[in-house]
Write a protein that binds this DNA or RNA. Structure first.
Lengths: 186, 186
DNA sequence: GTCTATACATGGATAGAC
DNA sequence: GTCTATCCATGTATAGAC
């Protein structure tokens, strides 16, 4: 954990904040550099490209998704397993930068298209969805299950209320997600 | 409805498609022009700026939201009124370019930040939300009601299945939205 | 590790001819 | 209404000094 790792971390911190607030394309490397009190060229010592900064930001999230998919692969598609999968997903959102990463991606959907790591992560989300529902489930069920995952993101960034605690967000997201997954019609 | 109106319409059609597929910033005016077989300069005859194209795309949606908000303003906040509000919202999605506009905006959140008409529309969505829930409603209720609106968008673009008909999408979105608005916890 | 300087591409937008 | 030509700002990325 020398000065190298530290600067690298500070770059990531500022980058994800600005990418989320102002947008990925609207945020120049010059702007990130200035916020850190260094120059553009300094960033290029730590990251080969702008895309590499993004890749570094989401790699923990991809790993976490891989674990979830692997776990789901060893279990049958039952309501109980779906519930547990959702609980585990919810728990991930409380750790590290995971919910920040999801918000960053949600707000920059098109801008991140074509980034290798981002496309990989979209694939993983698709695989996770397949663990939550069969292709021949009725449309309302598929819609509800897709939205179950979204509920756990939305709890963090759809509700903008500053006074809401992290525990309340997590609980609300989890509750709505579980209802959506096993609601009256599915 | 002369050649003027026609070309203008064709520009809008190509623009919203490319903005949604590839992204707003990733789509240059040159690219739109080439897809139409004209030059960049020709576009500038019909629209003063790139931002003006966006404004023209969403203005019908803003008008539709205004109508909805006005209607809600004349009624109390009851489950029945909320249900009717959601039904009317759902009906709007089946007309004109409304669901395409919502998808375009969903996929380009940050890129459209600061566009006057887009910011206006975000305000309107906020007002509509206020018609659906009180500030002191419990968090899961607020989350569910926010997601009710999202469900009606998601029915159109979260489910990518080509064989799904427009009627099925509309019905599924409406059903899930109504469940979310008046679910077990809200 | 960070700097200055700069190459190089691309995009939005305008001027003025036809 | 559409064209050619061009301006100008900005962005990513690199070379090379310190």
């Amino acid at each position: 954990m020398g000065a190298h790792t530290d600067t690298r971390n500070r770059i990531q911190e500022v980058a994800i904040r600005l990418f989320t607030e102002q947008g990925y394309e609207a945020t120049s490397l010059r702007e990130i550099a200035e916020a850190l009190g260094v120059t553009k060229a300094a960033l290029y010592y730590h990251f080969r490209t702008k895309e590499d900064i993004v890749a570094s930001l989401i790699e923990d999230r991809v790993k976490a998704l891989d674990e979830l998919i692997a776990w789901a692969g060893g279990h049958p598609h039952t309501p109980e397993i779906r519930g547990e999968l959702i609980r585990r997903y919810s728990a991930q959102m409380t750790r590290g930068r995971h919910h920040e990463v999801m918000q960053f991606m949600d707000r920059n959907k098109t801008a991140l298209q074509g980034h290798a790591k981002v496309d990989l992560m979209r694939e993983r989300m698709g695989e996770l969805m397949q663990a939550l529902c069969e292709p021949d489930d009725p449309l309302p069920v598929r819609l509800r299950r897709s939205m179950a995952l979204f509920a756990m993101h939305a709890a963090w960034f759809l509700i903008r209320d500053e006074s809401t605690t992290e525990e309340e967000r997590t609980a609300a997201g989890l509750q709505v997600a579980l209802e959506l997954a096993e609601g009256s019609g599915g």
